[in-house]
């Protein structure tokens, strides 16, 4: 039981938190701009590299330099929206999906050009785990990730329900034409969608980079799981995406637990297939996800 919590549940919550933060952006962009953002993983990568670079110049704890990664991700997101997505807004959204596929490649090439294609770690050396109540051994980073994500989730909830901008975003996500009729500034809502989505992505990217290492494919490799999380939560439901992310993270990690015998239920090499199969099941049986998101 203790082993289960230490070695499976907590890592599951950690990767789940990373998925959750990425999935929020994907869900919001899908809800407001009506397309699947293929470049979202690479936005995470950019954010991670931003903080990594800042750490080279200011050698403090990476999380303190999060704003640098967030700033870089926001600028990148607004730039690609302005130059690559906005010109295609009047066309069927599939064109924007294709464009985002191209943007993903652009982000990745830039990462490889500026930061090299190898792995780069935030801190080297073994980190000692924190020991709680003499039984739970949790890595300090994992605790930071989980706690920070919960804080962000609560803040997001209040933002969406209580603030003018949050309600405007939900309105545009519900009925964009009615929002225009009500005189809402849709372009402003779109800009803030990118800002929030990019900020969360950058945070997720830094977490992921600190957990393993920074490399150009960091975000792309997580894209499928994050998309599955967004579908699980219900497209257009940011809080649902957080729940979805945590669930998928836990499912992925606990799938390799020795549930039935001495062997892991799912071979660890196939861990990334878990998210895919969850997504397939959703698309077959409940595409609107847990919280009844948008389908079309």
């Amino acid at each position: 039981m203790i082993d289960f919590i230490n070695l499976y549940l907590v890592p599951g919550l950690t990767i789940g938190s990373i998925y959750a933060l990425g999935a929020v952006g994907i869900s919001m962009i899908f809800g407001i701009l009506r397309f699947a953002h293929f470049a979202h993983g690479d936005l995470m990568t950019i954010g991670g590299y931003g903080v990594l670079t800042a750490v080279w110049f200011i050698p403090v704890h990476p999380l303190l330099l999060l704003p640098f990664g967030i700033a870089l991700a926001i600028v990148s997101a607004l730039a690609v929206d302005q130059f690559f997505y906005k010109p295609l807004r009047k066309l069927p959204t599939i064109y924007t999906v294709i464009a985002s596929f191209g943007v993903a490649l652009i982000f990745r090439s830039l990462a490889q050009l500026f930061w090299s294609s190898g792995n780069q770690v935030f801190t080297s050396g073994v980190r000692m785990p924190v020991v709680l109540f003499d039984t739970f051994r949790i890595s300090e980073l994992h605790m930071q990730v989980i706690v920070l994500t919960l804080i962000i989730a609560v803040a997001l909830h209040f933002f969406l329900t209580r603030s003018k901008l949050g309600r405007a975003m939900r309105a545009v996500s519900d009925e964009p034409e009615l929002a225009a009729v009500a005189g809402l500034d849709t372009e402003r809502v779109i800009r803030w969608t990118w800002v929030i989505g990019a900020s969360m992505a950058a945070t997720a990217g830094v977490f992921a980079g600190m957990d393993t290492s920074m490399h150009p494919n960091l975000g792309w490799n997580l894209l499928l799981a994050m998309f599955a999380a967004a579908v699980l939560g219900g497209i257009g439901k940011p809080m649902g995406a957080i729940a979805g992310g945590l669930l998928i993270g836990i499912a992925e990690e606990t799938a390799t637990f020795t549930w039935l015998s001495d062997e892991p239920l799912i071979s660890p090499s196939y861990k990334s297939a878990v998210a895919f199969f969850i997504m397939v099941a959703l698309l077959l049986f409940r595409p609107q996800g847990l919280f009844k998101g948008r389908l079309l």
Partner: peptide
């Protein structure tokens, strides 16, 4: 995916490519 919006097919095709690779 066929009865859903084409975005889902796009994502599923990425997924299947990854599964096949695995």
């Amino acid at each position: 995916c066929v009865r859903l919006k084409s975005d889902y097919l796009a994502m599923a095709s990425v997924g299947i490519a990854e599964i096949l690779r695995l």
